[in-house]
Every structure is written in structure tokens, then in C-alpha cells.
């Protein structure tokens, strides 16, 4: 090894040590835990090794519910937020006046605390003995009957959850897409204009392919982010998510560790590994699709 690369490794030592202690080792530990059956966290002993933890988790109705919730959240919010962000970004880039002001406004949710946003959402949607809440008043205005979005039927709660998630992830996506749109060489648009291309065709044939790497990036990170949803759910529905029927996979993992029925690191680890497997699969599929369809110049 020459002195140059020695130096390189030397500089990397702090980062490697940090990652090793806080990322690699816990990861390794999770795998070990997940195969230890009947682990007792007080005595730190276990009966034997095997796949029982996985079969328990996969048969647990709470886990099945969490899995279902997470999937619904992912399937609805990822396409919806990405599509909406694209729409908003295209709109923003075509505005000439006050463009920066609008961009700032759209970015505000990004710097706002999740719990504060959740609280606001709860107030907007909640129905109490004293008030119907803002959203219900609007529903009344259009002649509908009020719904309890926070403690009511499942689909109502899921609606709030989806709207909330879309709203929270929007600013980041808008930011990424507006800068992607701004980085497209204007000569492409001029050339298309000289050839009399309609604006829809310009968007579909030129803009979209040009920014497709960024769209794919957003879809992949969107999937990963939505699968890891937890804090947002707590912000709206409180910590007893199993009772609310709104738990997510990460929520289930957390409950298994620290919740009322907690103290089961083995079950938690098994559930975490299931989540890991799902995210890995979806990311690999995404990357395969991307490699086939995205062209970079």
C-alpha cells in the first residue's frame, strides 16, 4: 500500500469506526436476535435458535394489519405525491413573476416540525363533542354528513394519513424537480419550438425523459420513506396505534420493543428483517426498471 492510500484510510478511520459501532454492529445484532427463540431481555438468555420468531410475526394479526396499512400508504402516496410534485414543479417553472416566493412557500413544510404539522392536521380533521372540525365543516357545506377522521372508520383514518404523508413529502420532491427542470438546457425547448412542437408533446417527449433520472430517484426514496413511516402516524393517531388499527411496520417493531406489550427484541428484529426484505426487493425492482427505461446522455 502506498502512502497516498494509507493517508486516505487514515482519514476514513473516524467515519468507519462510527458506522461500525452505530450501523454495522446493530444490523448484525438484529439478524442474530431474530433467530434467537424465547429471548428473555431481563436475563439475556434464550432457549434455542430457529425461525419461530418469523412465523410468529407473520401470523400476528397486528403485524398483518401493519403490513396492510404500510402497503396502502406506499401504493397511494408515492405515485400521488410524485405526480403532484411534478405538476407543481412544472407550474412553478413556467411562472415568471414571484417564482422565488412561491418556491419558498412550497418549501415551508419541509422545515416545519412533523409533530406540529400532525397536530395541525388533527385539529383540521378531528371531530369532538364541541366542534366538527374544519374539514367536516367544508363537507357540510357541500351537503355531506360529518365523519370522524381521527377516531372513526378505517378508510377515513387512512385518508387523513395519506393526505398528511403526501403533504409532508411534497416540498422535497418539488425542490428536486424544480431544480431538475431548471437544469434542462433551454436550447432543447428552442429547437422544439422552431419545429412547431406542441407544448404537450414537448413535455411528454422532451421534458419528461430529460428529468426521468430524478423522477426515478424520487420514486425509490419515496418507496423507502413510506415503508418506514412511523412518526407521522403517531403525530396524528397517538402512540396506541394497534388499538387505532393504524399501525405501520416500523410502529410494530417499536411496539414490540418498548410498547405496552413490549420487551420482545426477537420479534421486533424479525419484523424489521421482513421490512428490510420488502424494501430491498422493491428497490432492486425499481433499479432494474430504471436501467431499462432511463437514458442518461
Amino acid at each position: 500500500m502506498n502512502t497516498r492510500s494509507m493517508k486516505g484510510w487514515l482519514y476514513l478511520i473516524p467515519a468507519i469506526a462510527f458506522l461500525g459501532v452505530f450501523v454495522v454492529y446493530p444490523l448484525f445484532d438484529v439478524v442474530v436476535y431474530s433467530f434467537e427463540e424465547g429471548y428473555n431481555s431481563a436475563s439475556q438468555t434464550f432457549f434455542g435458535t430457529g425461525t419461530y420468531n418469523f412465523s410468529y410475526v407473520l401470523r400476528d394479526t397486528y403485524f398483518i394489519q401493519a403490513l396492510k396499512n404500510t402497503f396502502i400508504l406506499v401504493i397511494i402516496t408515492v405515485p400521488l405525491s410524485t405526480g403532484l410534485a411534478l405538476l407543481i414543479s412544472v407550474g412553478l417553472s413556467s411562472i415568471k413573476k414571484l417564482q422565488e416566493l412561491y418556491q419558498t412557500i412550497f418549501f415551508l413544510p419541509y422545515v416545519t416540525n412533523t409533530l406540529a404539522v400532525g397536530l395541525v392536521f388533527m385539529i383540521l380533521f378531528q371531530k369532538t363533542a364541541y366542534t366538527d372540525g374544519f374539514v367536516n365543516q367544508i363537507i357540510h357545506l357541500f351537503g355531506g354528513s360529518s365523519v370522524d377522521f381521527i377516531d372513526g372508520p378505517y378508510w377515513a383514518k387512512m385518508t387523513v394519513m395519506c393526505i398528511y404523508t403526501v403533504w409532508v413529502v411534497m416540498p422535497f420532491k418539488v425542490l428536486i424537480l424544480t431544480s431538475a427542470l431548471a437544469s434542462v438546457n433551454p436550447d432543447y425547448y428552442k429547437a422544439a419550438k422552431v419545429d412547431g412542437t406542441s407544448s404537450w408533446r414537448i413535455f411528454y417527449k422532451i421534458t419528461l425523459p430529460m428529468i426521468s433520472p430524478m423522477i426515478f430517484y424520487l420514486i425509490i426514496t419515496g418507496f423507502i420513506g413510506a415503508f418506514k413511516a412511523y412518526g407521522d402516524v403517531v403525530a396524528i393517531f397517538g402512540t396506541n396505534l394497534n388499538a387505532a388499527g393504524m399501525n405501520t411496520i416500523v410502529g410494530y417493531v417499536y411496539d414490540m420493543l418498548y410498547g405496552d406489550g413490549g420487551g420482545y427484541p426477537s420479534y421486533a428484529s424479525a419484523a424489521a428483517l421482513v421490512l428490510f426484505a420488502i424494501v430491498l426487493t422493491i428497490t432492486v425492482i425499481n433499479l432494474l426498471i430504471q436501467r431499462r427505461s432511463v437514458q442518461t446522455s
Partner: peptide, 28 residues
């Protein structure tokens, strides 16, 4: 507008669409 005038233009950056083949570019 340009398409009514019947002009062809070549840009300094060429502005060839990178995701299309040469033939698709010319046919655009």
C-alpha cells in the same frame, strides 16, 4: 411563429435529444 416561417435552426449545443436515436432526432 417559427414553424410557419419555414426555418431550420442549428444551435451551438446542437440540442440533440439524448434519449432519441439519430433517426428519431431527425424525424422529430
Amino acid at each position: 411563429s417559427p414553424e410557419v416561417r419555414g426555418v431550420g435552426m442549428v444551435f451551438q449545443s446542437y440540442a440533440l435529444y439524448p434519449h432519441m436515436t439519430v433517426l428519431q432526432n431527425i424525424m422529430f
